[in-house]
Design a protein around this nucleic acid. Structure first.
Lengths: 194, 194
DNA sequence: CTGGGCATGTAACTCGTTACATGATTAG
DNA sequence: CTAATCATGTAACGAGTTACATGCCCAG
């Protein structure tokens, strides 16, 4: 019985609902917890193999394109319960944009503002999306609703933070304004795909 | 000239200030950008080797406990500038506590509340800390101040989110209250080390 | 002058990412 | 009916983590 990592255990969690293929799982994870839980497609396939080897899931017959549906076993349910009952660890994050900000003195200020603008727009879109998700959720007291609500708070914080930056209307009391007087606008709209 | 990854390039950024040992770098990174940029000590040592092999830094003489100070070279400065000028990627994150929330139906609600309480306290402490950092920063328009300010907004969002949860006073309109009527309190204070 | 903790680094392993292969399905 | 795209999976590599080794330094 190999020791399972958090990626594998998360998959077990989703397999409680219904048997799924690796593809299904990757999609589902992305669309639900993807905001606060990174997982790549290849990881899913690898962990499914580990899970099968340990008897935590059973793979069905291979269908078209070799696809297989995996079903959780009783051992799988037990292993999941053990794992989810443990104290969760601290979060880990890598936010490249903040590195760009941190080392901002090395950059041309207009370029920096442009670059940040792209991310600002992206996060505004995401905030709007999260807002909609929240608004459309009737029951705010389900586990899923609670976790998704975090996404809203997070995106709100990011957007609010952007708006403290001088390129987007913040830091008004400061003497040193960035290169352009006007807040930078997108140079071409195609840059702004969410 | 090996291709450098973002971990290595970040180190180059810090080596602009002064020559440092691996230990120094790990500490510095942790204390400054650690909130939004995870990096383990071992990574630092490995990337320093890569950097030296590529001529981006030069290691000084070995001192006590084999320690070496690494100095950035001109090639290193160029490589850093190239890297920092590129469009930053999207953030990645793993927030185990939100997984716990997401799968909350699998848990006893009191246990869940207790577990979340630990993190709530931790983040309240961190928020307080970030607030102090901000308050003590005279010039809010430096790159470092801007990036650190993000930490404040982030922790604020986390704490606000916690307070939407029924264990900490939120979701009042909902019918289904968790097991205990009173918000859960720490069972033992030693659980609450930040 | 010694023993415990801290500073420093290395090695081995696991996890995460990138690149690829290929068979279905669908649009024109 | 053919090209394009999508669904599905694998393999190889690079990044991140854990465990360890060891010498220095300071409290007693």
């Amino acid at each position: 019985m190999a020791k399972l990592n958090s990626t594998a255990c998360t998959l077990l969690g989703f397999l409680h609902d219904r048997p799924m293929t690796g593809w299904d799982l990757a999609e589902t994870v992305q669309l639900t917890i993807g905001n606060f839980w990174n997982m790549s497609r290849s990881q899913v396939y690898r962990e499914l193999k580990t899970l099968e080897a340990g008897g935590y899931v059973v793979g069905g017959d291979r269908g078209a394109r070799d696809k297989r549906h995996y079903t959780i076993t009783e051992d799988g349910r037990v292993a999941f319960k053990d794992w989810i009952s443990k104290e969760p660890g601290q979060e880990i994050a890598r936010f490249p944009m903040l590195i760009t900000v941190w080392f901002g003195d090395h950059l041309d200020q207009d370029d920096l503002g442009f670059s940040l603008g792209i991310h600002y727009q992206r996060h505004k879109k995401k905030l709007e999306f999260m807002q909609n998700v929240m608004d459309e959720t009737d029951d705010q007291s389900t586990p899923a609703a609670r976790a998704l609500r975090f996404g809203y708070f997070y995106e709100k914080a990011v957007v609010d933070w952007f708006e403290t930056l001088p390129w987007f209307g913040g830091e008004e009391s400061s003497g040193d304004e960035p290169g352009e007087k006007r807040p930078s606008q997108p140079r071409k709209p195609s840059d702004f795909k969410a």
